[in-house]
Design a protein around this nucleic acid. Structure first.
Length: 641
DNA sequence: GTTTCGGTTCTTTTT
DNA sequence: GAACCGAAAC
């Protein structure tokens, strides 16, 4: 393979870097993924066993893309290489060694919805009835931050609630209780996966040696988004061979609210004194006038590796700043521009509308539907977190983990006359455990059920018992199918008005299970996967449509034309973020990410007012980020409706 | 004592 | 939407 001809100077240097620690500072659109993929190919060509290469990413999408590309580039020469998200690797190791840290190997992974529910019941159990006590969601963020940053909870809590009269003692007590409950239920939340994986490495010499020996080369994508745990874990993973290559861009660090600390990235050379540094600044994606806007907007941010995007492309058009009246006019403006682009030959799938928060897209979604424009939303609600999908998986979860109280209660609460209180009583009566595979457990349960639920249970009991009898532990789809046939299909129709649509979801869920080797595999995956349609998007069948996405979810992607909507003070930058220390700088980086997604055309949209549902209006100033861009870089437009 | 239903309010970002 | 709250219904 000719590496020289496929790469520019800086890329080539990084790809062929000598052993030892190396830091690749890769600005937006400079071929970061390409560099990583070629690095893998290079290593393999040097005779490194792919089995001994580890590639860590943050998202499933990034992992899949890199593995695919590496595969294609080497003609299948990288099979055996381990590549995936931090959470995936953590899960993989923990499944094998969970006992060493006091869990069963059959632990369940809580998604955020489960975690919220469990947190709520913890609050009830501690009888905290303070009206002003923070909501489960808030507490989870706080605990997650403490876990990810490895900082003491009390310090963080004092800062977090400095202006609210919150009993910090309760906040601390609650975390201990929550931790204890998770152990009892044999469940881990997302933060736990990372935390316990690190703990495993710190406490078990055997495990540490096993993987330190194995991983001769460790590559980390988006290193600026690592938190303390991840950085420490990476440090240990590469601890023996010390061939650690991290790639990232401090300008694109946008996850500090979940503990990401780009100082890991900035201080990498300090931590590893013999680090080789490579800087990629040649941008292949965008026109010079788009890059000028991007460079201008990020320049003022404090504490960063200075770098400037150099364009290689020809000019096309100045980015447009559109001043609009309200959300409706904004929607009409966007649609009119999309029509114009389409007439000039841009495919709809090459156009994206980006925004700070999901609800910012509401008017636009309605207008697009009305105008019969095909569009695809990278949705806020994750496929696997929808109520009916979670309902359908309760049986499986119980079969796999008899201590899964959340699944048990979720299942029982679908029955008539059975609410939270009764479900709790029954769970306790059964000794906080339900061995769903044994007939004895079912007999005991039936005695405890209200009369109305009894007959329903008798319908679904065979589904549970078939698991061992018919050896279904490798066929998650079959269990879901039978549960649906025995009970859930009917329940769906009685409960939801859009039952048909939800039934279709379940059908595709059953199809989706086919790719998994076991129920345990499937359950882990569905907690760690974001969306079912993520692969529909890469498949050729993915139909033509405008992409609607949050900026966070757009990271790493690119489109010919990009619209950024609701660029208003309080919305983007979001008011809540700006309150936090370093919040505005992070929002600015987010805006930088948004602008650097565009290849040819960039439209910045800035309405004046937002209409509330009650008919009132709120005035919004244009975003600081707009005002920071020198005027001559933008072409100004007004609404025309 | 519980469940269920209907009305109200509010949306940050993700593994 | 969906999460929360209060009141009616069982």
């Amino acid at each position: 393979m000719n590496f020289r001809d496929s790469l520019n100077e800086a890329q080539y240097a990084a790809v062929t870097a000598p052993d030892g620690p190396s830091l690749v500072i890769a600005a937006a659109g400079t071929g970061k993924t390409r560099t990583l993929v070629y690095r893998v190919a290079w290593l393999v060509e040097q005779g490194v066993d792919p089995n001994r290469i580890l590639l860590l990413t943050f998202t499933n999408k990034a992992a899949r893309e890199m593995l695919d590309r590496a595969h294609a580039l080497t003609g299948g020469g990288v099979s055996g290489m381990l590549g995936g998200t931090f959470h995936h690797l953590a899960n993989r190791l923990l499944r094998q060694h969970a006992r060493e840290i006091g869990f069963g190997h059959d632990y369940t992974i809580l998604d955020s919805d489960d975690a919220k529910k469990l947190m709520k019941s913890c609050i009830d159990e501690l009888e905290i009835d303070d009206k002003h006590f923070p909501k489960p969601q808030v507490l989870l963020s706080l605990y997650g931050l403490a876990s990810g940053s490895q900082k003491p909870l009390d310090d963080l809590a004092y800062d977090w609630f400095s202006e609210a009269p919150i009993d910090i003692g309760n906040v601390l007590k609650l975390r201990d209780h929550y931790t204890k409950r998770k152990k009892e239920l044999n469940v881990m939340d997302f933060d736990d996966l990372l935390l316990y994986a690190l703990k495993l490495f710190q406490t078990s010499e055997y495990v540490r040696n096993l993987y330190q020996d194995r991983f001769q080369y460790v590559l980390v994508d988006e290193y600026q988004d690592t938190n303390t745990i991840q950085a420490e874990w990476v440090h240990l993973l590469a601890g023996k061979h010390k061939n650690l290559m991290v790639v990232g861009d401090d300008f694109q660090s946008i996850y500090s609210w979940r503990g990401a600390d780009y100082h890991n990235f900035l201080s990498f050379p300090k931590r590893y004194p013999d680090t080789q540094v490579y800087k990629l600044e040649t941008n292949y994606r965008s026109t010079p006038e788009i890059l000028e806007v991007a460079n201008a907007c990020i320049k003022g941010n404090p504490m960063q590796f200075q770098k400037t995007l150099h364009a290689v492309r020809e000019s096309i058009a100045e980015p447009t700043l559109a001043m609009l009246r309200d959300g409706d006019e904004q929607a009409r403006y966007v649609i009119a521009k999309i029509e114009e682009l389409k007439r000039k030959g841009t495919k709809l799938s090459e156009i994206a509308v980006l925004y700070r928060s999901h609800f910012h897209a509401m008017e636009l979604q309605m207008a697009l539907t009305h105008a019969r424009f095909p569009y695809q939303v990278t949705s806020g609600i994750r496929f696997f977190e929808q109520a009916h999908v979670k309902d359908a998986c309760t049986v499986l979860r119980l079969l796999e983990n008899p201590a899964d109280e959340l699944a048990f209660k979720r299942l029982l609460e679908m029955f008539p006359k059975l609410g939270p209180k009764t479900a709790d009583k029954i769970w306790k009566k059964l000794g906080s455990r339900f061995e769903a595979r044994t007939p004895e457990a079912h007999a005991k349960l039936i005695l405890a059920l209200p009369a109305a639920a009894e007959s329903i249970w008798k319908e679904i009991q065979p589904v549970f018992l078939a698991y061992d009898k018919e050896n279904l532990s490798e066929d998650p789809g079959e269990i879901i199918y039978r549960f649906n046939k025995a009970f859930y299909g009917e329940y769906l129709v009685e409960t939801f008005e859009n039952a048909k649509h939800r039934q279709e979801d379940l059908d595709s869920l059953i199809d989706f299970t086919a790719r998994f080797e076991s129920c345990a595999d499937f359950l882990s995956e569905m907690a760690l996967l974001t969306n079912l349609d993520s692969e529909a998007e890469t498949s050729p069948a993915g139909q033509d449509g405008v992409r609607l996405s949050t900026v966070h979810q757009a990271k790493g992607l690119e489109w010919k034309a990009v619209f950024v909507i609701w660029l208003n003070e309080g919305l983007f930058p979001s008011a809540k973020s700006v309150e936090q220390v370093g919040g505005e700088a992070e929002e600015r980086r987010l805006f930088y990410v948004a602008t650097t997604r565009a290849e040819d055309r960039l439209f910045l949209c800035c309405p004046e007012v937002r209409r509330k549902h009650d008919g009132g209006v709120i005035f919004y100033e244009p975003s600081t980020f707009i005002r920071e861009i020198p005027e001559h870089l933008l072409k100004k437009e007004r609404g025309f409706f």
